[in-house]
């Protein structure tokens, strides 16, 4: 059973012509897929469809065997909280929470992921420390501080640890490496891969950085799978 199965999906913002028109997109379990495309081509929009945040005007979006269209908004929210870890393009930490609180935040909204952590025999805090440690964030004083004191790159790593905690089946990363230097980027990709492999998670990774392409199982160009002529900026 594929983790992601899109067929004849059409999506447009408002009344404008569709941004996305995807006849087919299938991602198998455990695959690590790299998605590229010019700015404004609809990459983030596609990830929104996969996360059940957006609903297509036509077609089917099946994630983990669940037809997202058939779920109510509340059910989709529930589904996302349980199964999907999101890493955003930018600015995605809660400024008034400490690093640790930010990382453990998804566990308060998804009991499945909390259970997964507890299953590993670690407390949420320990699990957060472990993930952050792999990303090179070990300084204990830093972990208790509010995230506003972190550099952009550090923030991006915290956000990644947050997406990975509780081993969601699907990890969706939207240009997570744009603010990282070369060495940190490598460590970051390593963690992302090892965590996804350990949990058997599927990874969707959007980036402009074509030097990363070779590390992934598969590379998709959005323009190739998208029939709609995007309004490219």
């Amino acid at each position: 059973m594929p983790v992601i199965d899109l067929s004849n999906v059409i999506f447009g913002w408002g009344s404008a012509k569709p941004v996305l028109d995807i006849p087919e997109l299938v991602v198998r379990r455990g695959e690590k897929v790299f998605i590229r495309g010019p700015s404004g081509s609809g990459k983030t929009t596609l990830l929104g469809l996969l996360g059940g945040v957006l609903t297509p005007s036509a077609g089917h979006v099946r994630v983990l065997g669940t037809e997202l269209n058939s779920l109510t908004a509340v059910q989709r929210d529930h589904f996302r909280a349980r199964h999907v870890g999101f890493i955003f393009q930018m600015f995605n930490l809660i400024p008034y929470l400490s690093v640790l609180d930010n990382v453990t935040l998804p566990l308060s909204f998804a009991s499945d992921r909390l259970l997964a952590v507890q299953h590993s025999g670690r407390s949420p805090q320990e699990e957060a420390r472990r993930l952050l440690g792999h990303l090179g964030l070990t300084d204990p004083t830093l972990l208790e501080r509010p995230v506003t004191g972190l550099s952009i790159g550090q923030q991006q790593r915290v956000a990644s640890a947050r997406a990975l905690i509780g081993s969601p089946e699907l990890v969706i990363a939207d240009e997570p490496t744009s603010a990282l230097d070369f060495d940190t980027r490598s460590a970051f990709i390593q963690l992302l891969f090892s965590e996804c492999e350990a949990a058997g998670s599927t990874l969707l990774f959007v980036s402009h950085d074509r030097s990363l392409e070779s590390l992934f199982d598969r590379c998709l160009s959005l323009q190739d799978i998208n029939r709609a002529v995007g309004e490219v900026h």
Partner: peptide
């Protein structure tokens, strides 16, 4: 952000 980490409306 809260919604992206799983908070429902």
């Amino acid at each position: 952000i809260l919604r992206s980490v799983g908070a429902r409306p």
